[in-house]
Nucleic acid binder design. Structure first.
Length: 562
RNA sequence: GCGCCCAUAGCUCAGGUGGAUAGAGCAACUGCCUUCUAAGCAGUGGGUCCGGGGUUCGAGUCCCUGUGGGCGUGCCA
């Protein structure tokens, strides 16, 4: 919470409790109430700036009508050392408080004093969080379905940092297991086809053109020597050739998307360092596994799952979930992050239940793993749903998307809705009507403010610091609303972090820009008396800097001119 | 069949641990630029919060139930 807002709420709670105590002494209340109550911002401004439901909360306990309790408290309130100028009893028994001038002035001074730091807090107390996102398979180019996860994961990481966590970003590279076998097989067949062999590419193989391109590139460099090599060796050589190119390609695309990872974690390293074997033996030791039909099963039903599931197949190979278990063991035990946050498509929810069911058997507290199940995006163009199929290779790649649509717009739009809500992305709209994009609305507000300062600079007028009394002159409704919104930022960042929901911040930006535009149309700056003009310039600077720091936090550009 | 998520204005969506007259953006219509950026602002119209029960001072929000969508439910990942 912002220091000022927090202080204001604390003061009012104390004032209410003190008034209640006085009411008891005076015999207006039968006993000192102990029930908890809340202070909240009313939906309707006519009901004050902060509203307390104490009287309703105490009604049952005191066996009195809420309204009567409210009046007993209200008449005994001492607001002298608070940020409230008055309190009214309204509705069913709400105590509605109205902020005084000092509140508005102090908020603005706080915003100006803290600059880019405003809104940030130490709520997370430096806890170490590992945010894993995208983690696309290195068997081909990323498709546009990865776009939401990228924007969400990166902005969520930034949000958690702003809320005081020590965050690292990680990409999990699935460079082992079955899909790599399939990748090798696909490359091999394309390679043999390249030299004229008449063989079909099986349906279960990767059908994309990129596979054939890799095979051809390999052949152009190394020739047909591999045709005579052992099958296993041939596939390994092709994978060793193609996969690093794919990984570099992903890294490059993600950089264009302004995403940089602290770590690219290899699945293969879990086999190499023995952690895959280690978790299997730990799970055996836990007593929560059994053998059946030659396979090793985990007793999922003992942990609330519908059915048991296989850990090690009868052919001796672990299923996909085992390296993932090892990976989370690595995150939470080996590397000992306080918390792991994964962004996954909602179609993985069955898998996440399995993963969470297993962790306690490794001595890991499940609450340390949070999985954000993001709904998949439905891409629409010309009124038709654009299908994404990696197998047929006909999907739009992430690279195409990044080239067609401005990065600012992508990063903003994908964070406009909460992760769990299904969203529709109209490609045509994003392309043709990009000027109507909400991100421009925010950027425009910033550019507008910069323009104001440029004009003043041309006339030799510079902004100066204002006194509390001068800032208190900002009492137009539009000004007060703007300042109240600024006041709520710190709390909003904490709430957004708690919900893993960066959309709260993009919407905050929209609201801040909107309130600024309203202020701009309602209030003049130039031509006003010097103190008021300066106070308004301070307000403009506060909005400008807050908008800029939030957009920068999400790695969205902040133009000074549009 | 079973499990998870969802249903709010014509469209896309907000509505922290239950609070006062349910909001915003698009779209439609009407106004506002000789004065700080009109990528803006002001205003108008627009609702059975999917249906039905229940919990209580009070339900879009919580519980049950029905309907309609999305997804999952492989010794695939």
């Amino acid at each position: 919470m912002s220091d000022i807002v927090q202080k204001a709420e604390l003061q009012l709670c104390q004032a209410i409790n003190a008034a209640a105590a006085k009411a008891v002494q005076a015999g207006a209340l039968p006993a000192l109430p102990v029930g908890a109550f809340q202070l909240e911002v009313p939906a309707n401004r006519a009901n004050g700036d902060l509203s307390a439901n104490a009287a309703m909360a105490w009604a049952r306990e005191l066996r009195l009508p809420p309204r009567k309790i409210a009046e007993a408290v209200q008449t005994r309130l001492d607001l002298n050392s608070t940020y409230a100028q008055r309190c009214e009893v309204a509705g069913a028994g709400f105590l509605n408080f109205y902020f005084n001038d000092a509140f508005y002035a102090d908020i603005l001074m706080d915003v100006r004093a803290r600059g880019d730091d405003y809104g940030r807090s130490d709520y997370g107390k430096g806890q170490r969080i590992l945010v894993e996102f995208v983690s696309a398979n290195p068997t081909g180019p990323m498709h546009m379905g990865n776009a939401r996860g990228g924007a969400l994961g990166d902005c969520l990481a930034a949000l958690l940092e702003a809320a005081g966590y020590a965050v690292e970003r990680e990409f999990y590279v699935n460079d082992a297991g079955n899909q790599i076998e399939k990748f090798g097989l696909s490359l091999e067949i394309r390679y043999r086809q390249y030299f004229g062999e008449d063989i079909e590419l099986p349906a279960e193989c990767y059908q994309g053109a990129d596979i054939a391109e890799h095979a051809a590139a390999f052949a152009d460099i190394y020739g047909d020597a591999l045709l005579r090599a052992d099958e296993k060796e041939r596939r390994a050589a092709l994978v060793a050739f193609a996969m690093p190119k794919n990984i570099e390609g992903m890294r490059g695309n993600l950089e264009k998307y302004r995403i940089e990872y602290d770590t690219w974690f290899r699945e293969s390293s879990l086999y190499a360092n023995g952690e895959v074997e280690r978790v299997i033996s730990l799970l055996r030791e836990s007593g929560n596994t059994y053998e059946s039909e030659g396979a090793l099963w985990f007793k999922g039903t003992d942990f609330g799952l519908e059915k048991d599931f296989v850990l090690v197949r009868s052919n001796g190979l672990p299923t996909y979930i085992v390296p993932d278990i090892a990976y989370h063991y690595n995150k939470l035990v080996t590397r000992n992050y306080d918390r792991a946050v994964n962004i996954l498509g909602h179609d993985h929810h069955g898998y996440t239940l399995c993963l969470k069911a297993v962790l306690p058997s490794l001595g890991i507290d499940v609450s340390r793993l949070d999985i954000v199940l993001m709904q998949l995006v439905k891409f629409v163009q010309n009124g038709e749903v654009v299908r994404m199929s990696k197998r047929t290779g006909k999907s739009i790649t992430l690279e195409d998307l990044l080239e067609q649509i401005p990065i600012d717009a992508l990063r903003f739009i994908f964070n406009l809705r909460e992760p769990t809500s299904q969203m529709e992305f109209d490609l045509g709209l994003a392309l043709e009507q990009s000027s109507k994009n909400p991100v421009y609305y925010c950027q425009y507000a910033h550019a507008r403010i910069c323009s104001i300062f440029r004009r003043f600079a041309e006339e030799g007028v510079a902004m100066r610091a204002c006194t509390r009394e001068e800032l208190a002159r900002l009492n137009a409704p539009e000004e007060r609303e703007l300042i109240r919104l600024l006041a709520s930022l710190t709390g909003e960042i904490v709430t957004a972090a708690q919900h893993y929901d960066p959309a709260r911040i993009t919407r905050f930006c929209m609201e801040l820009a909107g309130l600024f535009h309203k202020f701009y149309n309602a209030c003049r700056i130039k031509g006003e008396a010097e103190p008021l003009m300066q106070a308004r310039l301070n307000l403009c600077a506060a909005v400008r800097d807050t908008l800029a720091s939030l957009l920068r936090m999400f790695k969205i550009t902040v133009p000074e001119q549009m």
